[in-house]
Computed example of a mutant assay.
Amino acid sequence: MPHSISLITTIAASFGLALIFGFIAARFKLPVLVDYMIAGIILGPGTPGLVADIGLSSQLAEIGVILLMFGVGLHFSLDDLWAVRRIALPSAEYHSL
């Protein structure tokens, strides 16, 4: 039975580049998130060299966004929202129109 290794190579390349660029960010005291985005751009179809499986990468990216939003939801606090109510509520009303 033939096996497809595109999932393993996509995940390994993503984690490997994220690790390398994360160390570079920590060394220069830069935000790590920006370097993670640079690693994603390098793996993307717009650059020459290693290009990950596009369909698989988009599915993994969606899972990553879901996990990120879950993490944000875990840190959500009504007290913090109440502290910024003068800014958050008028902005929410303006954007809902």
Rank of each mutant, 00 (worst) to 15 (best):
F15D: 05
I38G: 00
S77Y: 01
A88T: 14
T10S: 01
Y94P: 01
I42P: 02
A61Q: 07
P31H: 15
Q59P: 03
L43N: 04
L68V: 09
I5N: 06
I41P: 02
G46L: 12
G71V: 09
A12P: 03
L30D: 00
S6V: 11
I24Y: 05
L89T: 11
E62K: 13
F70T: 07
A61M: 08
G44Q: 11
G46F: 15
A88N: 12
L56R: 03
G73H: 03
Y94H: 14
K29Y: 14
D35M: 13
D79H: 14
Q59K: 06
G55C: 02
S91L: 15
L33Q: 03
F70C: 05
I87Y: 13
L68F: 15
M37A: 06
I41T: 09
L67A: 12
I11E: 00
Y36K: 00
P31C: 05
D35W: 06
G40H: 03
I54L: 08
V84K: 14
F76D: 04
M69E: 08
S4L: 04
L19N: 04
I87R: 14
I24E: 03
P31L: 08
I11G: 01
G49V: 09
A61P: 02
S91V: 13
F15C: 10
S4G: 06
I87E: 15
S91G: 08
G71F: 07
F76E: 06
R85W: 13
L97I: 10
D53W: 09
L78C: 06
A18T: 00
I87N: 09
V84D: 12
I63P: 00
V34E: 02
V32R: 02
L60R: 04
I54C: 02
E93N: 12
Y94N: 10
G71W: 04
S58F: 14
T9R: 11
L97G: 12
A61C: 05
V32E: 01
L67W: 09
F70G: 07
V34F: 12
S14P: 00
I5R: 11
M1G: 07
L17P: 01
L19I: 09
S96I: 12
L60W: 01
R85A: 11
F23N: 10
T9W: 03
L30G: 00
A25Y: 01
I41Q: 05
A18D: 02
R27L: 11
E93S: 10
L56C: 03
P2K: 06
Q59W: 04
L89A: 11
L78E: 13
E93H: 05
L30F: 15
G64S: 08
P45T: 13
S6F: 03
V32W: 01
L56M: 06
D53K: 10
H95D: 07
G64N: 06
I5W: 08
A18S: 06
V72K: 09
S58Q: 13
T10P: 01
R86G: 04
S91H: 09
L78D: 07
V72D: 05
I63C: 07
G71H: 05
P90N: 11
K29A: 12
I87F: 10
I5E: 09
V84S: 12
L68T: 08
P90T: 09
W82E: 13
I8Q: 09
H3G: 06
L97F: 15
L89Q: 14
I42S: 10
I8G: 00
S14C: 12
A25F: 03
G22P: 00
A52L: 11
G49Y: 04
D80Y: 11
